[in-house]
């Protein structure tokens, strides 16, 4: 660095005031944008609740455990839809979690890189399929297959279980749950893959060097290491399943009762809102649908915030342990 010759690249004499103003302005605009986005979240919550307020006042909290939806006799309750939401989402989760972990293990531990990369891309693309297209496939191709093959098969082997009793149906809780499974596999498996790939090499190598098989190393080292992250992944998948409305509307049929069996049609919170809102005949029916929306919003906020909390705590612990 020369101190004698004048540097040709040296900035021209600068107007300090101008810089300060530019910085203050830019930071201010960026700050307003950030606060604005946070405000949208608040406004959204407020708006949904204020729209639903007449129904909340009319029916109170008992709306949540009231069964039935009849515009003619003015009976509205959310229980059927809460049940539908929870049952479809949990079946989806029950199937998607082990599958996702297995896919992630395949991609990180078993497949050579040359094979793993394209397969990982394909699993990601599964998430890119628009839900309305998956719903179209669900209603016209998958639903009939479920009714003609899967449900009779389940019935012949597990028919003694009440959940597999009754007549097979093209549209119902079971196909909806299976379509949701397809939708959440890419989400959970991508996170699990990320988690497994971050397991410190020396830990799993150490386990292998001690003579454990690959699976034992995975079960005793990789999975415990990734466990908090896996639970966050599962919660994020659950949030997605709770909130999915369109594909579920297409394949779940529509129902006003809770059935023991998974075969008959039902409804989730999202599917009922999507299928009935435009055709709502009375103000109170529309407001009751908005009450359903408020419940859905609360459920998904809780799920997502818990997932965030797990991730944050996990990262903090990781940062402390690594330095």
């Amino acid at each position: 660095m020369s101190t004698v010759t004048p540097d040709p690249l040296a900035p021209a004499p600068i107007d300090r005031q101008g810089i300060r103003l530019g910085d203050v302005l830019f930071k201010g605009i960026a700050f307003v944008a950030a606060v604005g986005v946070a405000a949208v979240l608040g406004l959204l919550t407020y708006e949904v609740f204020s729209l639903a307020w007449p129904a909340i006042q009319e029916f109170g909290l008992s709306f949540i455990w009231t069964q039935g939806w009849n515009p003619n006799s003015n009976v509205y309750g959310a229980l059927v839809f809460i049940y539908g939401t929870i049952v479809t989402s949990f079946i989806a989760l029950l199937l998607a979690t082990p599958l996702s972990i297995a896919i992630a293990l395949f991609l990180t531990e078993i497949a050579p890189g040359r094979v793993a990369a394209p397969i990982a891309t394909m699993v990601e693309l599964l998430a890119a399929i628009p839900s309305v297209v998956l719903g179209l496939w669900g209603i016209l191709v998958f639903g009939p297959w479920v009714a003609n093959h899967l449900e009779p098969w389940l019935q012949s082997w597990f028919g003694f279980l009440p959940i597999f009793s009754g007549d097979p149906s093209q549209a119902g809780i079971l196909p909806a749950a299976l379509v949701l499974t397809i939708m959440i596999i890419p989400i959970t498996s991508a996170i699990c893959r990320e988690l497994f790939s971050r397991v410190p090499r020396d830990l799993s190598d150490g386990s292998l060097a001690l003579g454990s098989t690959r699976w034992e190393a995975i079960r005793r080292v990789a999975i415990p290491y990734a466990a908090p992250g896996i639970s966050a992944a599962v919660l994020l998948g659950l949030g997605r399943a709770f909130g999915e409305a369109i594909a579920v509307t297409q394949v779940i049929g529509s129902g006003n009762t809770i059935n023991e069996s998974l075969f008959p049609p039902g409804d989730t919170l999202g599917s009922r809102i999507a299928s009935s809102y435009i055709g709502a005949s009375t103000a109170i029916e529309a407001q009751s649908l908005l009450y359903l929306a408020a419940i859905l919003l609360v459920i998904s906020l809780i799920t997502n915030v818990s997932a965030q909390a797990i991730v944050n705590r996990f990262q903090k612990a990781r940062r402390m342990s690594t330095g």
Binding site: L44, V48, A293, L296, T303
Partner: peptide
Amino acid sequence: GVPAIIVGIF
């Protein structure tokens, strides 16, 4: 994480 349908309702 807010469901798309809720954004529509908003």
